[in-house]
Design a protein around this nucleic acid. Structure first.
Lengths: 185, 185
DNA sequence: TGAGTCATGTAATTCGTTACATGATTAA
DNA sequence: TTAATCATGTAACGAATTACATGACTCA
């Protein structure tokens, strides 16, 4: 079944940035750049590429096969594809509904011992600390480069850093609050 | 088709808090409390209630029908339902994958005029300001009550406030960065 | 008397994820 | 020679959303 909707545009967008790429390249690049706010799987990417090609929004690039080159399907945007991408980019983004299972479990915390909630938050805190370190490494790498190449990446990276930092602060506060309630009990 | 997975537990949890409720009550209560991190629609709620009843995790409460009372199906947790809920609550929450369309559009910002990105962020900023006001109103209402009734609600509310605040800060910074790039152009 | 809200559902669709499947090339 | 990675896909399933549908009661 054809995959369309949003995945379509993440792929068009990535092709717009990379100029040309295979499904495999796209997956690697998405993992390396937007993984914290947008992921795709091979099982979406390949069918979407097929659909986009049929719609003439992308086309296969003739590969100059050097010896030992693996066969791969490399795509590039067509003018119509670029137009479709820009058209989508100009539209107001939807605020996609999120579900936060940690919050739901904390919200229902009354029904389990306080330690359970504390434990959940502590685990999330560790995860967030790793993520923050990762973000900082990336930011360091970007800073070495004083071109404008990472201009937009830095803006979205900054969003990640701010969100993770505030989540971490929440974790600390929440653990404190829960531990103090635990003592009073 | 049977709805199960996560929706199941948000409903069990809400029944745990409310003691007894109809599908309609549940929807209203979810809208009023967890809407910023967990939503359900009637089209999920009613089928899930049916499934949960068949599994004997919830049961219909005998309604004392006063005159003019509308007929409604009011449910309550069974002991097995409570057990299933607690069992789920104790398990480490999944970090559900989120997709942030605004970030994706900013990430691809190079391909549209800077004004487009600024506009997207400005719109989001206004939305976030409304949300923050709403959160503060709720917090005010909670503060008037010095019982422990809202203990866990306050913790999740605090998460909302922190996240929205840091998102707002990001909006301000990002707009500044983009406008300055615009001038240099 | 008509709008709003209480109240409960079904059908169709959308769409993404997981599991499954295969084979080539490369570096240790 | 074997583990890792390159590379591309299909099938089945799961699960939520949107649209559709209906009817009773209440208040202005």
């Amino acid at each position: 079944m054809a995959k369309t909707a949003k995945s379509q545009f993440s792929i068009l967008g990535m092709l717009g940035l990379l100029k040309k790429a295979s499904g495999y390249d796209l997956k690697k690049h998405i993992d390396a750049t937007t993984q914290y706010f947008w992921r795709e799987t091979y099982s979406s990417i390949y069918p979407v590429l097929e659909v986009l090609e049929k719609q003439k929004l992308i086309k296969k690039v003739e590969q100059v096969r050097k010896k030992n080159d693996r066969k791969r399907n490399v795509y590039t945007l067509t003018p119509q594809g670029k137009e479709a991408l820009i058209n989508w980019l100009m539209q107001e983004p939807e605020n996609i509904q999120l579900r936060n299972e940690l919050m739901l479990k904390i919200f229902f915390g009354k029904m389990v011992p306080i330690e359970v909630s504390i434990e959940h938050i502590q685990k999330r805190k560790i995860e967030l600390e790793h993520r923050l370190n990762h973000f900082r490494e990336i930011k360091n790498q970007f800073s070495k480069d004083n071109s404008q190449e990472f201009f937009y990446s830095l803006i979205t990276l900054d969003h990640g850093i701010k969100l993770v930092t505030s989540s971490l602060n929440w974790c600390k506060d929440a653990i404190k609050t829960l531990k103090s309630a635990q003592r009073k009990k």
